[in-house]
């Protein structure tokens, strides 16, 4: 890597850090428990907007994984999300009505909160429709994973998104509050992912899955990125650059082995394609607050979202993490 590129990245990291400090001032604390945040082993950070329906299962799922505390940015919800969150003992809530796009899809806010509260601690950054699955997650809490990563001097843990979908149109089976979304969206694509390396940041860029197969068969380059690095031993000098797809400093992005071996990784089961999908598409197309001015959502809107059926004969039905490991979507690395 050229000295000039290193310098550029350093400047970019500093700029993003400053930007997050500035954007952090848009957040106003609703109910914040600084002591509990500092004491928690692994905390989860997320930005939400009108997710009252999904939150109960989401919070519950991550509690069972062993998350000690939740840092949630409520971006102008008006469906009771904020009230519900504030009533949870292990959730700290900040509220803002500022623009989601203006904070680079919430990531500036998250960078700000992590720098403030989680220096030198483990953090997990996910969206409300992303459910982390990691090796031995059925038998070991997430603290076992982070302790092991610490012992290996690994600072970041990759988990690519696996888009989950139901059999039949998404609107056929309505999602109820508190329900496991993967009772409905229990299918996924097992081996149609394309990977390339980002030469500047060093991270892998993964595309494919049902979204590329169904929505982008003619222009695969536009298919959404699936690579994520959601679990990081944070430092106040770190920043997420683009969602949790990549970080700076770039050393955090080298979560893969390029000499043939396997490093450890997990998956984020992505519960996007539920009965809530058509309404979400309609809202986001109107709001134009998403990546590339919501280009992805416009594609969904053109494809009559309530009739979306991603299932095919070769879809794989989800069982557990071991299945994902055998299929090669994630790896135990040398954890045993």
């Amino acid at each position: 890597m050229r000295l000039w590129d290193r310098y550029r990245l350093r400047i970019r990291r500093r700029r993003l850090r400053l930007r997050s400090l500035r954007k952090g001032r848009e957040l106003s604390a609703v109910s914040v428990h600084p002591k509990a945040i500092a004491a928690a082993g692994v905390t989860l950070a997320a930005t939400v907007r009108n997710e009252r329906l999904r939150l109960p299962y989401f919070i519950d799922y991550y509690r069972r994984l062993g998350i000690g505390h939740f840092l949630i940015v409520d971006n102008g919800s008006d469906d009771g999300t904020g009230e519900w969150l504030a009533a949870q003992p292990d959730v700290s809530v900040w509220r803002t009505t500022a623009s989601y796009g203006g904070s680079r899809f919430g990531i500036d806010w998250i960078n700000a909160l992590l720098g403030r509260h989680r220096h030198d601690r483990w953090i997990l950054v996910v969206d409300v429709d992303e459910f982390l699955v990691f090796p031995f997650g059925d038998a070991r809490p997430i603290g076992a994973l982070t302790d092991w990563l610490d012992s290996c001097a690994i600072r970041s843990f990759p988990a690519m998104m696996v888009d989950m979908y139901p059999k039949g149109p998404v609107s056929a089976r309505p999602y109820r509050e508190g329900q496991d979304p993967f009772e409905i969206a229990s299918w996924f694509d097992s081996a149609n992912y394309m990977i390339s390396r980002n030469p500047l940041y060093g991270n892998l860029w993964i595309q494919g899955g049902p979204r590329a197969r169904v929505f982008f068969p003619d222009r695969p380059a536009d298919a959404p990125a699936l690579n994520k690095i959601p679990l990081v031993r944070w430092d106040r000098r770190y920043v997420f650059v683009n969602s949790t797809h990549m970080l700076l400093p770039r050393g955090l992005n080298f979560t893969y082995d390029s000499a043939g071996g396997e490093m450890i990784s997990g998956c984020l089961l992505h519960a996007k394609f539920l009965s809530t999908f058509p309404a979400k598409v309609a809202e986001e197309v109107a709001r134009v607050e998403h990546f590339a001015r919501g280009r992805e959502y416009r594609v969904y809107a053109e494809a009559s979202p309530d009739q979306t059926d991603l299932w095919c004969k070769w879809s794989e039905k989800y069982i557990n993490w071991r299945q994902l490991e055998i299929l090669g979507l994630m790896s135990k690395g040398n954890w045993a």
């Binding site: 992912y193 893969y256 082995d257 396997e262 450890i264 090669g328």
Partner: peptide, 16 residues
């Protein structure tokens, strides 16, 4: 697994 990996697999944490 850490050293050799699974032959023929290209994935998020194995990209030879």
């Amino acid at each position: 697994r850490r050293r050799m990996g699974r032959a023929g697999l290209y994935m998020q944490s194995r990209f030879p």
